[in-house]
Design a protein around this nucleic acid. Structure first.
Lengths: 257, 257
DNA sequence: ATTGAATTTCACCCAAATAATCACAAAAAG
DNA sequence: CTTTTTGTGATTATTTGGGTGAAATTCAAT
């Protein structure tokens, strides 16, 4: 029981290394060497379940990426770099690739992402919903109305609200606890409270400048709940019109005509 | 010639996206959408060379990763997130994975990487050589002797030397131009000059505390030159002994016995 | 309603990559 | 000198993912 290849740290580390485009053999070999400090192909094979004859290929891959050193003896010994060095290496490569990516994209991205269509868009991942919310916050000119329960007021969102508040945008919140509202009010210059009836099934409800809106719900997928959102922009956008009426903001203008 | 799919920015962006574990279809689709701003499967297919019937798979992959929004109409429209959002997303994911990786590795890395063997190790990649040099710099207690031409005195190395200098390690340099030596001397408290004969084929030569050493050479591989290095540690390490004599540091103790 | 075109989904094929196994030469150990 | 261990290469199997085409659905227009 000196080394159990299938323990949590092992599996986690291997998964991450594979994400960084190492072959599974290379990933397992590197993890094994990290645990051993130093070892021969045989040693590595025993604790990593990598066929012994393939350890050499794996080490070669790692060697050319600068992740292991090799001792040219017989049998040859292998040694992994320190975890700090490993981190610096991957971090550096990621940074480089990210900057290449963004400059490349900007060099062909003259398309304006201004959206004033009558479409209704869906957002996939949970993080993407927050991103979209933040973009809407950042674009707000006049007013932001945001209804959600406490757990959906994450710090980054509150920061976004504060930034809008600084620009003179009026902030109206609802659906949250009195405690949290008070806490947020302390940071912003002017916050109004709204008691609009938010449909219970809806998590988040946003309306910006009366022309952009987003609503999210929890879907009971196979597996754990997934939050998905729809959004729309434009004065004539049907989703905008509907959600506006939900907010009770233009009940008059609707029932009026 | 409105859109040439095989231009430089395209290829660069696609390569990076694939590195972040997007399928080539997904990568090409995302780039196409970044250029289009908004588009249908047909539009994407035309500018990206992705089979039209496969755009849906690609978009699905991107949607679940929060990289495109989908308009549920017919034909459905797709829209990529902004390049800034994209960057933030990848950056965040990488950071998360890196921290998981390092904690996982540290949780199973009780092996001391103390190396006092009589092995001679080779280092693969050029960046790894600098890493190893910096580690040796950081471990130095008494003295560092480093011989190399000017181009091998990169800023990070000079920083490492300065850090050692602050700890009271005596620094001895050689093989560099008088100008550069003066420049470096200005930053460090005490720097000695050494005129040891460095074999012309060797471009770096390091000796730390008389017990750890590294030498690098340029190998004319198929393709451009590659710098490879060997290093050894320990008083009895054969490489250490040999390089010591090259430095002319212990000619006595060798010829003595 | 009915037809025809376009859109979307689905299922399948095929090739490249890679995991896995084996066979054999070279070297070390006894 | 024999036996075991180590390194290299070839070979096979499996998986992944790119590529293609056939159904099904939807939309638009008779």
């Amino acid at each position: 029981m000196t080394h159990d290849p299938r323990s949590q740290p092992h599996a986690a580390a291997i998964a991450q290394l594979e994400w960084f485009n190492l072959s599974t053999y290379a990933a397992r070999t590197l993890v094994a060497l990290s645990g051993l400090g130093t070892g021969t192909a045989k040693d590595v094979s025993e604790v990593s379940d990598v066929p012994r004859t393939r350890v050499y290929d794996a080490v070669d891959e790692l060697h050319t990426r600068g992740l292991v050193d090799v001792q040219q003896s017989n049998p040859q010994q292998f040694m992994a770099v320190s975890s700090e060095t490993l981190r610096r290496k991957f971090d550096g490569e990621t940074k480089r690739r990210l900057s290449v990516l963004t400059t490349a994209l900007n060099n062909l991205d003259p398309a304006d992402r201004r959206v004033e269509q009558r479409g209704i868009w869906t957002v996939g991942e949970e993080g993407a919903i927050v991103d979209r919310l933040l973009e809407f916050f950042a674009e707000a000119d006049d007013e932001i109305i945001y209804l959600a329960e406490d757990e959906y007021f994450t710090p980054d969102l509150i920061d976004g609200l504060a930034a809008a508040d600084d620009r003179g945008v009026s902030i109206t919140l609802g659906g949250l606890s009195a405690d949290l509202l008070e806490e947020i009010t302390a940071e912003l210059s002017t916050v109004s409270r709204i008691d609009a009836a938010r449909p219970p099934a809806v998590n988040r409800l946003l309306l910006v400048d009366g022309s952009r809106t987003l609503a999210s719900v929890r879907i009971e997928e196979p597996g754990p709940d997934i939050e998905t959102a729809i959004w729309g922009a434009g004065d004539t956008n049907s989703l905008v019109v509907i959600l506006k009426s939900m907010f009770g903001l233009n009940g008059e203008s609707i029932t009026d005509e």
